[in-house]
Write a protein that binds this DNA or RNA. Structure first.
Lengths: 191, 191
DNA sequence: TTCAATCTGTTGTATATCCGACAAATCGAT
DNA sequence: ATCGATTTGTCGGATATACAACAGATTGAA
């Protein structure tokens, strides 16, 4: 499915780097974290960092993607239809993620984080739509995925700002009928 | 003091192996633990195990030594005289060690474990005596160290068998006068 | 501004680890 | 006692990581 086999050394090292980065993120702001900090926390050589990541922004990118994806994959790949339950699950994953990670650290990088989350959502939606509507025009699916990712992420921002007392699953439900309708109007379930 | 610098890779790998071995020792008996078990728990290649250890007995040897030494070094290297307080501390380290590790696992390897502990004790005593009595005949110091290590270990076995309700520091105290006397008769404090 | 100090990426070489394969040894069941 | 299955140690070739050094960029204080 993913890649057949990866050298265990790279798995170990990548994990060491990512864990160290997450650890340091809890201690100080992103802008104050240097590559040296990360590699000495991880007890690996600084050059090895650059063997795995282009720079510290690339690391941020991959860490965020991975953390978000871990939350998502569990729920998403059990259901296989893009229905109400799945959308609720995704929305919850996003709000969980925002509560756990992006709030407590990375001040000043909210925009970067937002972009990464949206990109990940877009990828997930697109894959899902492709599988669900294989006969449909790919361009149309792409546009739908973009719209969904921006739209749902926007709702999560709104929830963070003004409605954290409402349970996320509750909050998203009021938007779901529009979403489902939008999908079904565009192209009626793979027909 | 020890060695100037060791490659961080070997530190990581040795720790992974030793930790995995200790972990597995809690789950099953020593005789049922294979090298494959250890290396797959540690997520390292089996060949790498043999790069660090001769075989699984060598690993047992080093793990026991290291665990025991960790207990000892804290206490021993603060005091620098081989006096009553230090002997009590050493005895406590041994009984602690026996309670924590050798009882719960490694059934059937008590003799091996006993030998390893005695060897370690002998090394520690010899070093200490050398520093304390630099003018004395080395052969005499060696003999004293051997006698001390066997004797004190024997007392700890006796304690384990029949007197665990007595506090170790209490138990060893009754033997200490003889020990100290023995040292001082043989060669009067480095004169 | 200027200067010193730190940080960033990059490179070449040495070495630890991986991987697959192998023969010999050991184990367990028939 | 025999046979298949596992384990043990070992090896050679491939690859990831360590290390030291470097020039350029960035930072922070005088």
């Amino acid at each position: 499915m993913t890649q057949s086999k990866t050298d265990p050394r790279v798995l170990r090292t990548r994990k060491l780097i990512m864990d160290s980065f997450i650890e340091l993120s809890g201690e100080k702001e992103f802008k104050d974290i240097t590559v040296k900090d990360i590699t000495s926390e991880a007890m690996i050589n600084r050059a090895t960092f650059y063997y795995h990541f282009e720079d510290i922004y690339d690391l941020l990118d991959k860490v965020l993607s991975e953390v978000l994806l871990v939350n998502l994959n569990c729920d998403v790949y059990e259901n296989n239809e893009l229905n109400e339950a799945m959308l609720v699950a995704i929305f919850q994953a996003i709000t969980n993620f925002q509560k756990s990670l992006s709030n407590r650290c990375h001040r000043g990088y909210e925009d970067t984080i937002a972009r990464i989350i949206r990109e990940q959502l877009e990828i997930i939606f697109y894959k899902r739509l492709l599988k669900q509507c294989p006969t449909e025009n790919e361009q149309a699916l792409k546009v739908t995925a973009v719209m969904l990712s921006w739209g749902i992420y926007g709702v999560s921002v709104e929830w963070s700002k003004n409605n954290q007392q409402v349970p996320p699953e509750e909050f998203i439900k009021s938007a779901i009928p529009y979403i489902i309708a939008g999908i079904n109007i565009g192209f009626a379930k793979g027909e």
